[in-house]
């Protein structure tokens, strides 16, 4: 019966095979040209003069310090935005209050501001002519054109990633489970740790991994506040730019290939997280429906009855 309806459905709501395959072909050609070729070109250009030249490009001390700075920046920016994301999602998804829609818009704001404008904002606060500039200078603290500025700009650019992933997820899950835990005597922290966190873990991983990719790859905002001091305030993307502009194409693409690998790893982890989440949702929806009023007999009683 169900087989019959599904075969009828297939006949009535799909296109002729030649239309189908033409559309698939067009889509694949477009994706090949715009996504696969640029990705392949990174590795091809990096290896153009052989593996030796590739490794030489990576062995340069400036490349190493750029890699180190990128890792440090991400290691600071991602946890900061993780704590913020969970906190913002908790208060926005679990409660109703006035101004909630406005707050949600503000959380999203850094996505719509151009990275270059974001960098400029920090120059205006911390730069020599900025609000805090004279005070910082007299205390010999450098923020703009130094590592703290790079971290701040990165935090700004990756600000909404985790919150935005978690808010719809926690809204969809509702409050019932947490309320039950609280009523049963769990503390707020226990409730979060044992009830909320297992429910949101895949969304959380997804958000963290995208946040991390953007933190390591940010270019525009970091470029404004970095000052481009080789070996000191160059992140990997900025180092790629310098090498590229100096016509050291192989070295530039060698460093770029590390970033492309990072992107590929990000996509794999993201797909796995998505897939696991889907499977858990399916498993949950496949559970037999529970009778709301049914009294569950103790295990012994069931055995006796059977």
């Amino acid at each position: 019966m169900s087989g019959a309806t599904s075969s009828i459905r297939r006949i009535s709501t799909t296109e002729a095979p030649w239309v189908r395959w033409t559309l698939i072909g067009l889509a694949l050609v477009f994706l090949l040209l715009f996504l696969v070729l640029p990705l392949a070109a990174v590795f091809a250009e990096a290896l153009r003069k052989g593996l030796g030249a590739y490794l030489d490009g990576l062995r340069e001390p400036d490349a190493w310090s750029a890699i180190r700075l990128t890792l440090i920046t991400a290691a600071i920016a991602v946890p900061l935005n993780l704590v913020f994301g969970v906190s913002a999602a908790w208060c926005i998804a679990k409660y109703e209050f006035r101004g909630k829609a406005f707050l949600t818009t503000l959380v999203d704001l850094p996505f719509s501001i151009s990275p270059v404008v974001a960098g400029l904002m920090y120059v205006l606060v911390f730069g020599a002519q900025g609000w805090l500039g004279p005070w910082l200078e007299s205390h010999d603290i450098k923020i703009v054109f130094a590592v703290p500025g790079i971290v701040l700009a990165t935090v700004f650019v990756t600000f909404p990633f985790i919150a935005r992933e978690l808010i719809p997820l926690m809204q969809a899950q509702g409050n019932e489970e947490e309320q039950a835990a609280i009523v049963l005597g769990a503390s707020g922290w226990q409730t979060f740790w044992y009830v909320t966190l297992p429910n949101i873990k895949w969304g959380l991983i997804y958000g963290v991994i995208l946040c991390n990719a953007r933190a390591m790859g940010e270019f525009g905002a970091v470029s404004v506040v970095s000052g481009h001091i080789r070996g000191q305030t160059n992140t990997m993307p900025l180092h790629v730019e310098i090498l590229y502009n100096e016509y050291q194409s192989v070295a530039a693409f060698a460093v770029a290939s590390l970033l492309a690998l990072l992107a590929l790893v990000t996509l794999v982890i993201k797909s796995v997280a998505e897939w696991k989440h889907e499977r858990e949702m399916k498993a949950a929806s496949a559970l037999p429906p529970e009778q709301p009023t049914s009294w569950v007999p103790p295990a012994g009683a069931v055995k006796e009855a059977s």
Binding site: L35, A41, A252
Partner: peptide
């Protein structure tokens, strides 16, 4: 399907030079 997100994950400078 996974590849569609590449522009989100690939640093913009890398996309630019490639």
């Amino acid at each position: 399907d996974a590849l569609v997100d590449l522009p989100f994950a690939l640093p913009t400078a890398v996309a630019g030079i490639s």
